[in-house]
């Protein structure tokens, strides 16, 4: 099974596991499923010459033990703290891992190819802004907002975009940044409706809240639970609930705040 070229490379099992974890980590961060990560890391280790690989991954940790011929046992783990959906990167990483398994690239070649992928930037901010504008406006219309609501939605989307950028740069607590996003978004939406620019705060907020994504993580969490990635499912489910709570908190704050100011 294993080519001779790889057997020469197998002098460095630690490095091989390290690279497999690097790739697995980035797949997880870019939005790959837990199952895919486990599968990829395991295949990569095998391709680099491991006899047996056991991988356990959840959304915040990858843990791998690989046994090499000759008895070397290597265990490494990786803590994952961020998540930044980028399908293009996922696609490239997936193609790379296939290439490593099928064409049996050597370890150093694989590392170069990996570095090449990581050099490519994830979505630029103008793309994110464009996406947010389109998504927020379209979903406001989708959930029954009228023309005026669709005019307010892009404004709120810009507010959310700026707020997310700012809080990401500061890098503070995620819960508080969600509260802030939701607070600003609902304040702007409510003000716009109060001054007769939009006609329904609810419709604008529903459209824009799609951007803050708890709905997607909810669905993803339930999917994980059914598939049998129970731990990941529970983690995402609680994370999604916390995000929903944060959004609710921000919304409540802004209603209280504006209620005091406007009345």
């Amino acid at each position: 099974m294993v080519s001779e070229k790889l057997n020469q490379d197998a002098a460095a099992p630690t490095d091989a596991v390290h690279l497999a974890l690097d790739i697995g980590e980035q797949i997880l961060i870019s939005g790959g499923e837990v199952g895919r990560v486990e599968d990829t890391v395991s295949r990569l280790c095998t391709a680099f010459g491991a006899m047996r690989t056991d991988v356990f991954a959840i959304t915040s940790l990858i843990f791998v033990t690989a046994i090499w011929e000759g008895g070397a046992v290597i265990t490494q783990s990786r803590r994952i703290k961020t998540s930044e959906k980028c399908m293009q990167r996922l696609e490239l990483l997936n193609a790379l891992s296939r290439k490593i398994c099928n064409e049996q690239l050597s370890l150093s070649e694989a590392r170069v190819a990996f570095a090449e992928i990581m050099k490519k930037k994830t979505s630029s901010s103008y793309k994110i802004l464009l996406g947010s504008l389109l998504a927020a406006t379209a979903f406001t219309a989708f959930f029954g907002g009228d023309l005026w609501d669709c005019l307010v939605a892009p404004i709120v989307a810009v507010v959310i975009f700026l707020c997310q950028r700012l809080t990401r740069r500061i890098g503070g607590n995620r819960f508080l940044s969600q509260v802030l996003c939701s607070f600003l978004a609902s304040t702007v939406a409510t003000l716009a409706v109060t001054y007769h620019l939009g006609s329904s705060v609810d419709h604008v907020m529903i459209g824009c809240i799609m951007l803050l994504i708890p709905g997607i993580s909810f669905t993803h969490a339930v999917e994980n639970l059914i598939i049998g990635d129970t731990v990941s499912g529970l983690i995402s489910l609680s994370e999604a609930t916390v995000v929903a709570l944060a959004l609710a908190g921000g919304f409540a704050l802004s209603q209280g705040f504006l209620g005091g100011v406007l009345l």
Partner: peptide, 14 residues
């Protein structure tokens, strides 16, 4: 709207 919305999210998701 679901066409445009999905286009938006497709861009957002990279």
């Amino acid at each position: 709207a679901s066409f445009v919305g999905a286009v938006g999210f497709a861009i957002l998701f990279g």
